[in-house]
Simulated assay, not measured.
Amino acid sequence: MSDIDNFPTLFRTQVPLIDTRAPVEFERGSMPTATNLPLMNDTEREAVGRCYKNEGAEAAIALGHQLVTGSLKEDRIAAWIKFANEHPDGALFCFRGGMRSGLAQQWLKDAGIDYPRISGGYKALRRWLIDSSDNIYAQETFLVVAGKTGCAKTRLINHGASGGRLPGGIDLEGMANHRGSSFGRRDGGQPTQINFEIAVDSAIFNANDEPVPFIIAEDESRLIGRCALAQNLQDCLKSAPMVVVEASLEARVEHSFENYILANLADLKTRLGDTKEAFEHFSSDLYAALDRIKKRLGGVRHHELTRQLDDAIASHLKGDTSVHRGWIAALLRDYYDPMYNYQLENRKERIIFRGSEGDVAEFLLAQQHEPTPE
Rank of each mutant, 00 (worst) to 15 (best):
S322V: 08
E46D: 12
L237Y: 07
G64H: 00
D19H: 12
Y52H: 10
L286Y: 13
R226M: 11
I261K: 03
A176L: 09
N208H: 15
M99Y: 14
G70K: 00
G64L: 13
E277A: 12
L331V: 05
I351Q: 03
P23L: 05
C236R: 03
V212A: 06
V144P: 06
P38S: 14
R296E: 13
L309Q: 06
I224R: 02
G150W: 09
S101A: 08
P373H: 10
F183H: 00
K53H: 07
G120L: 09
G174D: 02
Y287Q: 10
W128G: 08
A161N: 15
F353L: 09
W128T: 04
R50D: 14
A329D: 04
T192N: 00
L10P: 01
D134N: 14
F93A: 02
G188I: 05
R45I: 12
M339P: 01
K153Y: 01
G184D: 03
G70A: 12
L17Q: 00
V323R: 14
D311C: 07
N341C: 09
N36G: 05
F183E: 01
P16D: 01
P32A: 05
E140F: 05
E345C: 08
T69G: 03
I61D: 01
I61N: 04
L103F: 11
N6K: 06
D75W: 02
G147C: 04
D267Y: 09
